[in-house]
């Protein structure tokens, strides 16, 4: 078919930030589908809690480590916001420092999550209550660890010769996913730790 050129796009830039990039939408889509998984898992918890008159079928989980985990997660939103902003400014120095901080926070949270598991009052194979606690906590831990690994990789990346250009947009996407890890934790926390206290 014959062509006639009606527009010239020579001057369009090669990358940008946020919803102008495909990766931002891809990350959002993964957050939505994983969020659906969380919603259904928590729905399953509430369903079984509703069916069993004497819920919880065991002692409620202790609140110390999980409370600490929740506080640190919420606090991490501040450096996360800052690293996102620094990435948009393409300020390599700030991005490096903040990424190191975020990696440290991530490792700390992974440690706290480990302590949460260690003090759970029932084993997964004891009854359905134990199964739910371990599995839902595990599901969130997988997301946590995935993003921590990703953060560390991005941090290393930004200290190499690749740390420029659209890699700043990658930093931003990594920060975006961290919001999801924190936000998906909040309903999870309420259901696992507070419904059983009622």
């Amino acid at each position: 078919m014959d062509h006639r050129v009606v527009r010239d796009l020579s001057d369009l830039p090669n990358y940008a930030f946020g919803p102008r990039m495909t990766m931002w939408w891809g990350t959002l889509a993964f957050c939505v589908l994983e969020g659906t998984g969380f919603a259904l898992a928590l729905g399953g918890y509430l369903y079984l809690a509703f069916l069993n008159r004497d819920w919880p079928l065991g002692p409620p989980p202790p609140l110390f480590w999980s409370g600490l985990f929740t506080l640190v997660s919420l606090a991490s939103l501040v450096p996360n916001y800052l690293v996102e902003a620094a990435a948009r400014e393409e300020n390599l120095f700030k991005v490096r420092i903040l990424l190191v901080i975020m990696s440290g926070i991530g490792v700390l949270l992974a440690g706290l999550r480990f302590m949460e598991f260690a003090v759970l009052p029932v084993r997964w194979d004891f009854n359905a209550y134990g199964s739910l606690l371990w599995t839902i906590l595990g599901l969130h831990a997988v997301h946590l660890v995935t993003d921590v690994v990703d953060t560390v990789v991005v941090t290393v990346l930004m200290f190499t010769r690749h740390g420029f250009g659209r890699r700043f947009s990658d930093v931003e996407d990594n920060a975006f996913y961290w919001y999801f890890v924190v936000i998906s934790w909040l309903p999870t926390y309420v259901v696992l730790y507070w419904v059983s206290q009622l």
């Binding site: 079984l48 069916l51 194979d125 009854n127 359905a128 134990g130 199964s131 739910l132 599995t135």
Partner: peptide, 20 residues
């Protein structure tokens, strides 16, 4: 998990439910 790690999501006897 029910099959390999002995969880009880679908096991009525231990608080699970097949209809789940």
């Amino acid at each position: 998990l029910d099959r390999l790690l002995d969880t009880h999501f679908f096991n009525q006897a231990e608080g699970g439910d097949p209809l789940l």
